[in-house]
């Protein structure tokens, strides 16, 4: 695979570097100003401070929002992964027209802007009496995360040779056993990717959650509420930097794990 990669890409190398600079420059500014000893994010810099990070640690509302986001994210991750596994497995192995239809509808939210998903579910949860709440946000985020989980898992189930399932059937395993003992273990790396993807999608999601939130905000909703107050901006930037640092650590750890795990699958 790597053999056909050539050392020189001509102008492409510098272009990719410029692209990455464009991608990271605004983010880098947030990190820079989170250490700046001034409320206003402008040059010249006023001096180094950690006070915005101290304010972050002391903030109770923020901690509540963080716990909310983590709880919602974990629930969404579980539900979206279970739905993704069952939907894609039935589509690939169930051979029924209904399973194909369900899988197509599950990927539909990819074509619906978040604002439409948000209002559609707002009408639904109000009609059902559930109302805006954490559970409503979970439902919204499951819809947003579902297309990605189905696409990832479908690709994985498709890549497993049919002969493996047929061999298990010939040896007397019925459907449930084939799924639980053969196909699911083979798809496990993809299941893990899907679960992580769903968690991240939920953790960062704002547009849908905005419509469905009750009295307890998620982290993005808390950030949104603080963006109106110029005085709390440095703290919000410190929060953004902390999330970024945590993400880099997590993404880096996932990458290291992926490289060192034996028999890694195309996930």
């Amino acid at each position: 695979m790597t053999q056909r990669a050539t050392a020189s890409g001509g102008w492409l190398g510098p272009y990719v570097i410029a692209y990455l600079v464009f991608l990271y420059l605004p983010v880098a500014l947030i990190v820079l100003f989170s250490f700046n000893d001034a409320v206003q994010a402008a040059f010249p810099l006023k001096g180094f401070t950690l006070s915005w990070y101290e304010a972050l640690l002391a903030n109770e509302t923020l901690r509540g929002a963080l716990m909310n986001s983590v709880g919602i994210g974990l629930t969404v991750s579980l539900v979206a992964t279970v739905c993704g596994v069952t939907i894609s497995y039935l589509e690939i192995h169930g051979r029924s027209r209904f399973a194909t239809l369900v899988s197509a509808v599950a990927r539909l939210p990819l074509l619906i802007p978040g604002v439409v998903i948000g209002i559609a579910l707002l009408i639904l949860v109000n009609l059902s009496g559930l109302g805006p709440s954490r559970l409503s946000i979970v439902i919204g985020h499951v819809l947003v995360a579902l297309p990605a989980t189905v696409i990832v898992l479908r690709g994985r189930f498709q890549a497993i040779p049919r002969s493996i399932a047929e061999a298990a059937e010939d040896l007397g395993a019925h459907d449930g056993v084939v799924f639980r003992r053969v196909m699911l273990p083979l798809a496990l790396p993809a299941v893990a990717s899907a679960a992580m993807l769903a968690f991240l999608t939920s953790f960062d999601e704002f547009i849908v959650a905005f419509f469905l939130a009750g009295t307890e905000p998620t982290l993005p909703l808390y950030i949104w509420s603080q963006l109106r107050f110029p005085k709390s901006l440095p703290m919000v930037m410190a929060l953004g930097s902390a999330i970024l640092a945590f993400s880099i650590l997590l993404a880096g750890a996932a990458e290291v794990l992926r490289r060192h795990s034996p028999g890694r699958g195309p996930a």
Partner: peptide
């Protein structure tokens, strides 16, 4: 076609902004 050994690093860098807050971007 050209990244060679740098491919996974660049893929990592390109996907990392997925992990940062959309609101903050």
């Amino acid at each position: 076609f050209h990244a060679g050994r740098r491919r996974s690093l660049i893929l990592f860098l390109v996907t990392l902004p997925f992990w940062t807050s959309y609101l903050l971007r």
